[in-house]
């Protein structure tokens, strides 16, 4: 459904050198990215700011022309067949407003029906489905400028889906939303992927989005894909370290036990990192209890946030020679 082969995007920028002189500098935003996404997949696309995520999405949607490489989306070349492609994809930018500012949602949707030339019957059925799914009813007649961020995002998602796209590109759709609104947006993404078979490429900073939704994850850094695989494999590969948090009766020096190291001490509370292969949680607890009097304890499993943060800072074996 989506194929990239050696895709690059470079920008020329002019940097000031002295009063008049400028220096030409070539910035590589995307430096040779290749991957394939099958129809019906829901793939997470993550990476730190400036990694090239948005640039990739803009090339896939026909906004930017790649500097090198080959892109095929739904069998089309995005930058050359932009209008044909636009009919077959949906795009949501979390930070931009696609709906008409002055118009009520209902009128925006009507306008989109004409722009995408959706048959009336089909439009009505879709609209009913999405009004139900995203609970748009109460604010359908409100001008977009008066909607809350969460309401607007629900409107944007509907707008992107009304013409039955095969692929949905979501660029940070949950940014700035509260917990309830986030949950609703996630539910929506999962539903359209499962029930309508829409292929979804989700760019996000919120790894909880990925954890709830995506079976596959692409991690991008400095314009290159540094991880491409399942979420569970990622955890297996990098997420061996679990954490035992103990509350001691009295503050003391870091506890020294075999198979674990103290990562942090805060008064009577200590964090011990350990690996499943080295020592079991029960053995470790017993060893700690032998050295100090325990009041309470908890075990934390590795979370995706930590893993990805580590990959950003340390890289992966794949990315290191």
């Amino acid at each position: 459904m989506i194929e990239l082969e050696g895709v690059e995007k470079t920008f020329t920028v002019w940097r000031k050198r002295g009063r008049l002189r400028r220096e030409r500098q070539v910035v590589e935003a995307v430096a040779g990215v290749s991957f394939t996404i099958e129809a019906g997949a829901l793939v997470g696309y993550v990476g730190p700011n400036g990694a090239g995520k948005s640039t990739t999405v803009k090339m896939l949607t026909g906004i930017l022309v790649p500097s090198a490489g080959r892109i095929s989306v739904a069998g089309l070349e995005p930058s050359r067949q932009r209008i044909d492609l636009a009919r077959r994809i949906g795009v949501v930018f979390g930070q931009r407003i696609q709906l008409w500012w002055d118009l009520p949602l209902r009128e925006s949707f009507e306008l989109l029906r004409h722009i995408y030339r959706v048959p009336l019957e089909r439009h009505r059925t879709n609209l009913t489905t999405f009004i139900d799914l995203l609970e748009l009813g109460p604010f359908l007649q409100t001008p977009v400028r008066q909607l809350s961020l969460g309401q607007r995002m629900r409107g944007e998602l509907t707008a992107a889906m009304l013409h039955d796209p095969e692929i949905l590109f979501l660029d940070e759709p949950t940014i700035g939303l509260d917990v309830v609104a986030k949950a609703r947006v996630r539910e929506f993404m999962s539903t359209i992927n499962r029930e309508r078979g829409v292929t979804v490429l989700l760019t996000t900073h919120d790894l909880a989005d990925i954890e709830r939704l995506c079976s596959r994850l692409l991690i991008l850094d400095h314009g290159r894909v540094i991880y491409d695989g399942g979420l569970e494999e990622l955890k297996d590969l990098y997420g061996h370290e679990r954490t035992l948090i103990v509350d001691l009766e009295e503050p003391g020096p870091p506890i020294e036990v075999d198979g674990a190291r103290v990562a942090r001490v805060d008064g009577p509370r200590q964090w011990l990192k350990f690996r499943r292969e080295d020592v079991s949680a029960a053995e470790l607890t017993a060893a700690v209890a032998a050295k100090a009097r325990l009041i309470d304890l908890a075990i934390e499993e590795p979370d995706i946030e930590d893993i990805v943060r580590r990959i950003y800072t340390e890289g992966t074996p794949q990315s290191k020679p």
């Binding site: 803009k58 949607t61 906004i63 044909d84 636009a86 795009v91 930018f93």
Partner: peptide
């Protein structure tokens, strides 16, 4: 502002 992005994802000139 980058709003021209939105123009390019619609099926019109």
């Amino acid at each position: 502002k980058g709003d021209f992005d939105l123009v390019l994802v619609r099926p019109l000139g």
